[in-house]
Simulated scan of single mutants.
Amino acid sequence: MLQQFYFKFVEAPTLLRIFSMAIFFIIFFGITIHFIEPQTFPTIFEGIWWAVVTASTVGFGDYAPKTVPGRILGIGLIFIGAGFLSAYFIRLATTTVASQNALKEGKTMYAQKNHLVIVGWNERSKEIIDQLQEMTIPRQIVLIDDSLKANPYTSRIVHFIQGAPYKDETLKKANVKEANMVLITADQNKNEVYADMNSILTLVAMKGCRPDLYCVVEILTKEQVINAQRAGANEVIETNRHASSIMLNSLYFDGISSTVIHLLDPLNGGHLKILSTKEEWSHLSFGQLAPLLLQEQTLLIGIQREEKTYINPPFEFPIQRADELLIIQR
């Protein structure tokens, strides 16, 4: 039994072992001084009180040994007890600093749930994080990146994890199994083909960790969109295609790029959403439903039916129960 206790003590954290030894010596010296000088220390508690203030080098002076054996015991307590207490507080300070450094350097596991995981540090992810923090209901964010050496934010608005996003160790630290959603951005340090390959590899790792996790992935090349969908992406953001469409429209309509950005910016009060069709709307046409939604400050701009999206269809376009409505809502 003593051997089992010894092994448990040895395997315990260093901070706990030092603290336990300091408490043991304080109680031992407190009880011993009570039996050596029962008149000066009439109770065991007063002996322990003296041991505490002596070991901590406070020395209130309300209790002090009178005999030579008692003073020798006090000298031993100062050398032994104070040494252990000093070591304890030094170790405590060292552990605190190490914990803060580990948190800053992305080595600490995230323990909460229902958070947003963002993979990759770049101007796009920075803009997303900044805008999320300005919203009325900010989200808990975990940032994964293997190129950063420290958390890019000085304040604790994101939990940083340093490491490759396709490794199990990194995913465990980010607590991906308890996450609400994942956004995978393209690696800006690689060319487009390798960046897409890296994004799909990360997507496969995420889905392998939790198959029902909602994953949004950024793909740069058109050829890799189908592979991202095969890998299980819930949404694929074709950055180059979207940017090209805005540029093309800017060639024909002056100022359209700033208008589109303003429209898509959720901080401006307008949100581009997809709304499921209600049962009572299924017999209406696009022209009949649009004014009904407009009364609720909801602008109907299109219909999404299966794999096709109809933007501003004819007024007589029929609404079906399985349709999804593309709207702008405050």
Results as ranks from 00 to 15, higher is better:
E169S: 11
V193R: 13
I44P: 12
D254M: 05
H242F: 15
K173L: 12
L103D: 04
G302Y: 00
M1A: 02
C215M: 02
E46D: 12
P165A: 07
D323E: 00
I141L: 03
Q288R: 09
V260T: 11
I141K: 02
F24P: 09
G81D: 03
D196G: 02
E127W: 04
T239Y: 07
V216G: 00
I311S: 04
T298Y: 05
F41T: 01
I141R: 00
P42E: 08
I219F: 03
G83A: 03
T95H: 10
C215L: 01
T239N: 08
L263C: 10
G287D: 11
N189R: 13
F28Y: 12
Q133H: 10
F29A: 11
G61P: 09
M197I: 09
V182E: 03
V10Y: 08
L85D: 06
L103S: 06
L275K: 11
V260N: 05
K190W: 04
R91W: 11
Q100C: 07
N151E: 03
P65I: 10
A102Y: 05
H242M: 14
K278L: 14
F41S: 01
L85F: 09
P13F: 07
T202P: 01
L116G: 08
K167Y: 09
I18H: 09
L171C: 01
S20I: 11
T154Q: 10
M181P: 00
D265M: 00
K308D: 14
P165T: 02
V260P: 03
L116S: 05
M1I: 02
I129Q: 00
T95D: 15
C215S: 08
I303T: 02
I75S: 12
L203S: 03
F79P: 11
I219K: 01
F29E: 05
E324N: 10
I118Q: 06
A164S: 13
N198Q: 14
Q133R: 12
T40K: 09
E134S: 14
A87D: 06
F35S: 08
T43E: 04
L16H: 13
T54R: 07
P152E: 04
E169C: 02
F60W: 11
A111E: 15
V217D: 02
E127A: 12
K104R: 14
K167R: 14
I78S: 12
F286L: 04
V260Y: 01
F41H: 04
I303C: 06
M247N: 13
F79Q: 11
D168I: 10
Q3F: 15
Y214P: 09
T54D: 01
S99P: 00
R230T: 13
F286K: 01
G61K: 00
T95Q: 13
R71D: 10
A55K: 07
R210L: 08
E279M: 08
F253E: 15
E46Y: 03
F5L: 14
L325S: 01
K8H: 11
F79W: 13
H159V: 02
Y6T: 12
F25T: 09
F84E: 00
G269Q: 03
S258F: 03
I72A: 14
E223R: 14
E178K: 13
S285T: 15
H34D: 01
N101M: 09
H271S: 12
Y214M: 04
G120C: 09
P38D: 12
S285I: 04
I237A: 01
